[in-house]
């Protein structure tokens, strides 16, 4: 089975500084992968290099098929005369020059896409007046409407409240379930822990990657962060929290369980 995305030996320099060094990982079709790292660790640069916006000094990126992208921050004036349905429709052919005519098929495709992200009721709302979570969902619909095999999202949860973030993650889980590979960057991995199959951890330009259950372990994370990290299980879910800095006796345990 061919991979939806393969990154190998990727090194990127920006303004003389080495932002990424020898980064490698692969995404199978339908994979849900978290790209985790602190602000400034190179997450955006990695996504931009995958998109082809930055050129790599070494290494290669292989993509299978089209890619959809949800940018980090979009500042839209509330007066912009663009409705949610217009933004989604631009995902179909927004790059094309020439005259376009309204068609029933386009309308249907856009409506279906808006329904898939639970926003059909907001189709005629101006994009500048949507809430943060709604805008993220419109952008996801924009990215998915052209049926890409890979979806990249740059910190889509950064400015959302807990509920909106959980709804976005559930939506992306559904998307991955339909065979689209999802690569989502975040500085906090907790909202993603229930959904992601694998994660790429970025620090100081280097990446560590693996399946979620291999990486999200106290000793692995503590080494990655250079700080004591607790992995705890509450109500059948896993949470990652920073410890108090001391090396604990139970560091050899994979998961500390709170009954």
């Amino acid at each position: 089975m061919s991979m939806a995305l393969e990154v190998s030996g990727l090194t990127v320099r920006l303004g003389g500084r080495e932002v990424l060094r020898d980064v490698g990982f692969a995404l199978a079709p339908g994979a849900f992968c978290g790209l985790i790292g602190a602000n400034g660790s190179g997450k955006t640069t990695l996504l931009r290099t995958i998109l082809g916006f930055e050129t790599a000094a070494a290494g290669r990126v292989t993509r299978d098929g089209a890619v959809g992208y949800v940018p980090q921050k979009l500042e839209l004036a509330p007066d912009m005369p663009v409705r949610a349905r217009d933004l989604v429709a631009l995902g179909l052919d927004g790059q094309r020059f020439g005259f376009s005519f309204p068609s029933a098929r386009r309308r249907r495709v856009v409506a279906e896409m808006l329904e898939a992200v639970d926003l059909l009721g907001f189709a005629d709302q101006r994009v500048g007046e949507l809430s943060g979570g709604q805008l993220q969902r419109v952008l996801i619909a924009h990215a998915l409407v052209s049926k890409p095999k890979l979806l990249l999202l740059d910190e889509p949860l950064a400015n959302l409240d807990l509920r909106a973030a959980a709804e976005i993650v559930a939506l992306l889980k559904r998307v991955a379930g339909q065979g689209v590979s999802v690569l989502i960057s975040a500085h906090d991995m907790n909202p993603l822990l229930g959904a992601m199959h694998q994660l790429v951890y970025l620090a100081n330009g280097r990446a560590a990657s693996g399946r979620t259950e291999q990486v999200v372990r106290t000793e692995v994370l503590s080494e990655l962060y250079g700080y004591h990290i607790d992995v705890i299980r509450v109500h059948g879910r896993i949470l990652v929290v920073a410890g108090d800095g001391h090396v604990h006796a139970h560091d050899h345990e994979h998961v500390a369980t709170i009954p």
Partner: peptide, 23 residues
């Protein structure tokens, strides 16, 4: 303006979205 309507509109919203779509 009519011929360039869609790229002009999409890049007004977000240049990176237009670039991803190949504009």
């Amino acid at each position: 303006v009519l011929a360039g309507f869609r790229p002009l509109l999409l890049s007004a919203l977000a240049p990176e979205l237009a670039s991803v779509r190949g504009a």
